[in-house]
Design a protein around this nucleic acid. Sequence first.
DNA 1: GTGCTGACACAGG
DNA 2: ACCTGTGCCAGCA
Length: 112
Amino acid sequence: MQELPEFAEAVLEVVDAIPPGKVLAYGDVAELVGHGGPRRVGHVLSRYGGMTCWWRVLRADGTAAPALEQEAVARWRSEGTPMVGGALARRVDLTRARWDGQREGGGSVGGA
DNA sequence: GTGCTGACACAGG
DNA sequence: ACCTGTGCCAGCA
């Protein structure tokens, strides 16, 4: 594989593991990889994100950077990611879309 | 070695 | 709901 830094490799691995319709915050990814902080995750995606589903990674607010908002929102709508205020909002409902790092389907019923 | 910038996070107004 | 300031970590001039 590429000589990608271990950190970058771990990040891409986690992002690639996120199921469709789910999302993770930069800080959450950093926690899952167990290294560095949110800024490093963002930089990795900006550099190697071109080959990963970076749109499944957003800020803790459920929003994405201005430049990515256009692209990301389109992706979320396409993937069916839960949005706040309907599918027309530019914000994701982290309350439901936040991936726990485990397999979907969870057990909980709650939802819905 | 110093300073700035950046696909962030959190608290305050 | 919105914007602002501060802290954190790493890369780059």
